[in-house]
Write a protein that binds this DNA or RNA. Structure first.
Lengths: 220, 220
DNA sequence: AATTGGTTTAACCGTTTGGTTGAACCTGCC
DNA sequence: GGCAGGTTCAACCAAACGGTTAAACCAATT
């Protein structure tokens, strides 16, 4: 789970002071829950337990605050579980690690996920530069996964699927049920009564469905 | 594609006047693009080409306007492509119709989709009653699909998968790439240059991946 | 022609919100 | 002690926003 050769959560924020970190966490929470427009500077200040003027002292205005919070969230996404993915020996293992990695990341970073989805829903103007850096780095989970799919297709370990579409499909199934959690919980009884249990069951289901969908038939 | 025994888009709004329909469309657009908090009454009025006071004349305030727009959007979701799904003879056909139905619905109702996702992201307090009615009606695509999955499992046409999880997985893959469109288009070259083509390719990929994932191995 | 009831408009109002100001307050340093 | 730089705060401000008002308009009805 821990990637010792990648920056940890704390490292990523090393450049920030204690007060700035407080503001950061508060801002992420409020932006994620209320949306970019719905977030109130006063509420962020309250949540960070500081005066409202301090917000504008540390971050000039709402836009730059949002920009920095978003940038940090993006960096956090990139830094997650890349290494363990590379080391996976078989494609089955790759798929397991990828599913587990994404589901666990979203489970423990729901606010980050909400921020990301909100940004996309609003047009995603802040995404550009970050995604390009992600693409350039070559170390992010999505890229590694695509490479692994390509290799597995070449070796015949899985069928001749489109790697990019496969990536989108797998990520979708790992994240979307968190996005639609209220709907899922209204329709699905078990999800409502024990979400943790539901998430675990879902990881099993996903591996089963997707692995079976990717692997060739036993014989013919 | 057309379900003659279900209310059409026009029917659903028959109770509304011309002006109200204008307001409706404008409100949906603005709420979907700017979010519930980010939407401005003035902007909705401008988009509907009426005076701002008219908004408050027809819909008492922002909350009731949002509530009505959301309720209408919900009804539209329920009324889509249920019948053709029931008539599908094989499970393969069921899956094809379901994928095609959902993808096409979201493609042609992106604002409705955005509204729905936004509502879920914000906690989904408006969902309750509507989803219960959907559950009670028994005619909505998700329920029909679950029944078809159960039947196909029983007949051995597909493997012993969990029908509810399968439903969530299929819907996720049909919708999430629309939600994350800006990200997908930044990463995927073809999606950026020709989105329509990408959507078509995606439908093919999804059927292939999911059908293969659900169906038993050819032999053993 | 006068009345009625729904519709439309410009001007207005009170509150909320993002952002500013200027003074007070530390803390380390000479 | 006294200065200097960064930090904290209550009070303040202008703009934006949701919502209201009162008068005007217009098509039926009598």
């Amino acid at each position: 789970m821990a990637d010792s050769n990648l920056p940890s959560d704390a490292d990523l924020r090393a450049e920030y002071s204690e007060t700035e970190r407080q503001i950061f966490d508060a801002a992420l929470r409020v932006f994620a829950r209320k949306g970019r427009a719905g977030a109130r500077m006063q509420e962020i200040a309250d949540a960070a337990d500081i005066n409202k003027a301090m917000l504008h002292y540390y971050f000039r205005n709402k836009e730059t605050l949002y920009g920095e919070v978003f940038a940090f969230t993006m960096r956090r996404f990139m830094a997650s579980f890349g290494a363990s993915l590379k080391e996976a020996p078989t494609f089955a293992e790759t798929l397991r690690v990828f599913i587990d990695g994404y589901v666990e990341f979203v489970r423990t970073n729901q606010d980050a996920m909400r921020l990301m989805v909100n940004e996309n829903l609003a047009g995603g103007t802040h995404l550009g530069e970050h995604l390009k850096r992600l693409k350039a780095s070559g170390d992010a989970p999505p890229q590694i996964f695509v490479e692994k799919v390509e290799a597995a297709v070449a070796s015949g370990e899985i069928r001749a699927v489109d790697p990019d579409h496969t990536l989108v499909s797998v990520i979708s199934t790992c994240i979307f049920f968190f996005v639609m959690r209220p709907t899922v919980q209204t329709i699905h009884a078990e999800a409502a009564s024990d979400w943790g249990e539901f998430v675990e069951a879902r990881k099993e289901h996903l591996f089963d469905l997707l692995y079976h969908g990717l692997v060739p038939d036993a014989d013919a």
